Computed example of a mutant assay.
Amino acid sequence: MTTGPTHRSPAAPPSPLASAHVEADGVPVAEPELAAALMSGYGHFTAMQVRGGRVKGLGLHLDRLDGATRELFGHPLPGERVRTLLAGALARAGRTDASARVYAYPGGGPGGGARILVTVAAPAPDGPGAPQRLRSVDYLRPAPHLKHLGAFGQSYHGEAARRAGFDEALLTSPAGEVAEGAVTNVAFWEGTRLVWPSAPCLVGITMALLLTRLPSVRRPVTLDGLSGFRAALVTNSRTIAPVAAVDQVRFPVDEELMERVHAAYRAVEGEPVAV
């Protein structure tokens, strides 16, 4: 009896730092392979707010991590493992409220799976964010459906926007089609529903939660059509904030809209981190 060839994903080339002697500020690094993974820029992450040991949309975060790990590394990432590592990090940091991130890097995990890093920091302030002024830039993230590392392009444009007096960069195509903010999703209010740009972008967890709880549609949005909207807002894991302007197009802050959006988000029940 004969069988066909077994398909195997091609192995990633070894990092040139994997067996190197690595120092940080003159001190040898205890785990050069970990340093190599961190410096590779190849990986992905998710960011969340923890309140009382619970996370809104935790299941969506776990699905994001698992899907990206399968796509980038060819291995699943069980949600139970992520929750155990996150719960442990929160406990050791002595926090039940926190800004937390879970990073996945290739290799080093159980059975050759992803290596997971967790960061725990002070929580973001609750409540509405300050109005944001956005500067449009001709730039789209590679593989935009992934919350991946190596975000030099969006960081470059975001910092340039801030130096120019704006709060955030708005990423657009060469034809002026709006995609997303450098670190946010953006939506525009037409009076009866939110319009989320349909250009390729990362569907953030906050965006995903609001899409199912507020009248919403995804369709193309262009810079030359922005003046037809009544208001705009941005979302990410840290804030939901009104948009005051995109370039020279100004938007009024619609307090009624923002209260409606925040009420919809507040109504989302957090899921417990602890397994």
Results as ranks from 00 to 15, higher is better:
Thr172Leu: 09
Gly181Glu: 07
Leu17Ile: 09
Arg163Met: 14
Tyr103Met: 11
Ile116Gln: 02
Pro242Gln: 05
Leu257Ala: 05
Tyr105Met: 12
Tyr103Ser: 10
Leu170Ile: 09
Arg193Lys: 13
Arg101Leu: 12
Thr46Asn: 01
Glu190Trp: 02
Val118Tyr: 01
Ala169Tyr: 10
Val234Gln: 02
Asp97His: 00
Cys201His: 13
Ser237Thr: 14
Ser15Arg: 06
Ala187Cys: 03
Val261Thr: 04
Asp63Trp: 07
Phe152Arg: 12
Leu58Phe: 01
Pro131Lys: 07
Val249Ala: 08
Ala199Glu: 13
Ala124Gln: 14
Val186Glu: 04
Leu58Arg: 00
Gln248Trp: 12
Gly129Ala: 09
Ala89Ile: 07
Val217Leu: 13
Leu170Lys: 03
Asp126Gln: 15
Ala130Met: 14
Leu58Tyr: 00
Val275Arg: 10
Thr6Ile: 15
Leu226Ala: 05
Val29Ser: 04
Phe188Ala: 10
Asp66Tyr: 07
Ala18Gly: 08
Thr184Met: 05
Ala245Asp: 14
Ser99Ala: 14
Arg115Lys: 09
Leu233Trp: 08
Arg213Ile: 07
Arg101His: 09
Leu257Cys: 03
Glu71Lys: 04
Val249Pro: 12
Pro28Leu: 13
Ser198Val: 03
Val195Arg: 06
Arg218Gly: 07
Trp189Glu: 10
Asp167Ile: 11
Arg70Ala: 10
Gly191Ser: 09
Pro28Ala: 12
Arg193Tyr: 07
Arg64Asn: 04
Val273Phe: 00
Ala122Phe: 02
Leu117Asp: 11
Arg141Asp: 13
Gly225Cys: 08
Gly108Ser: 06
Met48Lys: 01
Leu194Gly: 02
Gly79Cys: 03
Leu149Ile: 06
Pro142Leu: 14
Pro142His: 11
Arg135Pro: 08
Gln49Val: 13
Ala160Tyr: 01
Ala91Val: 07
Leu214Asp: 03
Gln132Ala: 14
Leu58Val: 05
Pro272Phe: 09
Glu33Val: 15
Gly228Val: 13
Met48Arg: 00
Tyr156Val: 11
Val268Thr: 07
Leu86Ile: 09
Pro106Ser: 03
Ala93Met: 02
Pro14Ile: 11
Leu17Glu: 11
Glu23Lys: 09
Glu269Lys: 09
Asp97Ile: 09
Ala36Ser: 11
Asp167Ala: 10
Leu38His: 02
Ala121Ile: 04
Gly181Met: 10
Ala169Lys: 06
Ala35Ser: 12
Val178Trp: 03
Val217Ile: 14
Ala104Pro: 02
Tyr105Cys: 07
Pro10Phe: 12
Gly150Asn: 10
Leu233Gly: 05
Gly191Trp: 06
Ala30Ile: 15
His157Pro: 11
Arg92Lys: 13
